[in-house]
Design a protein around this nucleic acid. Sequence first.
DNA 1: AAGGTATATACTTGTCAAGGAATATACAAC
DNA 2: GTTGTATATTCCTTGACAAGTATATACCTT
Lengths: 118, 118
Amino acid sequence: MTMDLVVIYKCMCDRTRLRILHLLSRGPLCVCEIQAILEEPQIKVSKHLAYLRRHGLVRTERDGNNIIYRIAADASDRLDRNLSCLQDCAQEDRIFREDLRRLARIEPLSCRVEPASR
Amino acid sequence: MTMDLVVIYKCMCDRTRLRILHLLSRGPLCVCEIQAILEEPQIKVSKHLAYLRRHGLVRTERDGNNIIYRIAADASDRLDRNLSCLQDCAQEDRIFREDLRRLARIEPLSCRVEPASR
DNA sequence: AAGGTATATACTTGTCAAGGAATATACAAC
DNA sequence: GTTGTATATTCCTTGACAAGTATATACCTT
């Protein structure tokens, strides 16, 4: 499928959404993880996620109490290209690097992972 | 220099600006050429060019009656990366391809070129 | 059923941007 | 100087979006 470039850039032109897209292009995350990484209020994260979903860049799946967001796999080549460009650009940026640092810490606690043992 | 990614995407999230950036990454153009290629009203083109200039993506140079716009050479790696991503994405798109067709036709008549002979 | 947690949806307010109409500026040619 | 051409700026209206407060929904647990 082919996605409108303008829509892609509209989604990318807000810092919060950009951070979310950057994270999600590393792999799916649930809302509470995204919140924890971004350190932004629930409503802010939720609304930007809704924006991304409404425009077809991400899709969701419920897992119990949690909702897991991921990049829409079938979205478009254009999105893929732009997300990989974002990965390149983000390397030099402090904010994105700190997000990745928090992502690494948070992953093991993920609500998506089975309880370790019992 | 390093340019804010959000600013870059804000500049790219309007179709008219995107077409302008796509054209300018092929080389400098004067306003009247851009207008002729985009087939959009003067004021619209002019205002989007002003937006791009205000945000540092392009710079201008006067040549007699004409004003020549070009991508700000020293802008940033990020801009370069995104513009080359745009070139890739634009290949599949009818609008951008038609712009290039008109660009090819218009170039010989360019106001930047010396009068052929006399 | 009741209470808790995770997430989303109104509703409001302020800001910014887009488009158009009219006008202004800068230069060129005479 | 006057006129013409190219380009920019001002003013206006309209619509989109960002952020916050409060409230609702969906699921889980007991």
